[in-house]
Structure formats: structure tokens, C-alpha cells
């Protein structure tokens, strides 16, 4: 399977990653190789195999519904670039 430049540019936009033309060419080759490997894996007969949700053969432990966390806003906001009135400030989001 091959991946087109358009696909790469689209994925880059979705992932908010800036790539220049040269990088796209390199990615075209690298991602193409990875997808070839996936294609190869895809030829294995998995009809009788249950899809795997997690590589570990274990089940999730659950937690009782009890408050264990305290307010540590000051500590978290000390490393934030901008805050005001307890809010984190981010570049304006326009819908």
C-alpha cells in the first residue's frame, strides 16, 4: 500500500504538525514502508482470532468512588504560561 502526499498533508493538519515538502517526501517513503508491513500482517488468517484490545492479558482494576485528590491549583498554575482568576488562558479559540 502506498500513501499519497495528500494523505500525509491531511494527517499532518489533523495532528497539528508542520511538515515541509522535503519532509513529506521522506515520510512518503517511511510511512509507505510501515503500511507495507501492515499489509503483510493483514494477509495472516485471523478469522478465528478475537481482536486484541490490549497486549497484556489482564483486566482493568476499578477504583472506589471516593475523593482522593485535593486542590493543588497553585502548584499546577505555577507552570502555566498564563492564568487569570483561576483560569488557564490560551490563545483565543474562535468557533
Amino acid at each position: 500500500m502506498t500513501i499519497s502526499r495528500t494523505d500525509i498533508e491531511k494527517v499532518a493538519v489533523l495532528a497539528r504538525i508542520q511538515v515541509d515538502d522535503e519532509q513529506v517526501s521522506a515520510l512518503e517513503k517511511d510511512l509507505g514502508n510501515i503500511l507495507d508491513l501492515v499489509d503483510q500482517l493483514g494477509t495472516a488468517d485471523t478469522d478465528a482470532v478475537e481482536p486484541l484490545a490490549h497486549p497484556l492479558d489482564a483486566v482493568q482494576k476499578l477504583r472506589p468512588d471516593e475523593v482522593t485528590e485535593t486542590n493543588q491549583r497553585a502548584a499546577f498554575q505555577a507552570i502555566a504560561p498564563a492564568t487569570e482568576n483561576g483560569l488557564y488562558l490560551v490563545p483565543r479559540v474562535i468557533e
Partner: peptide, 18 residues
Amino acid sequence: RTKIFSGSSTAYGAEPNT
């Protein structure tokens, strides 16, 4: 009482980010 993946309170109306 708490969030789905952490032990933070879900009480409504608290000061922002506390």
C-alpha cells in the same frame, strides 16, 4: 462523587480548576 478516571471531586460550582 469523583471523576471517571481520577479521584477528583465532581461537585458542581467549585472555584475554577480547584
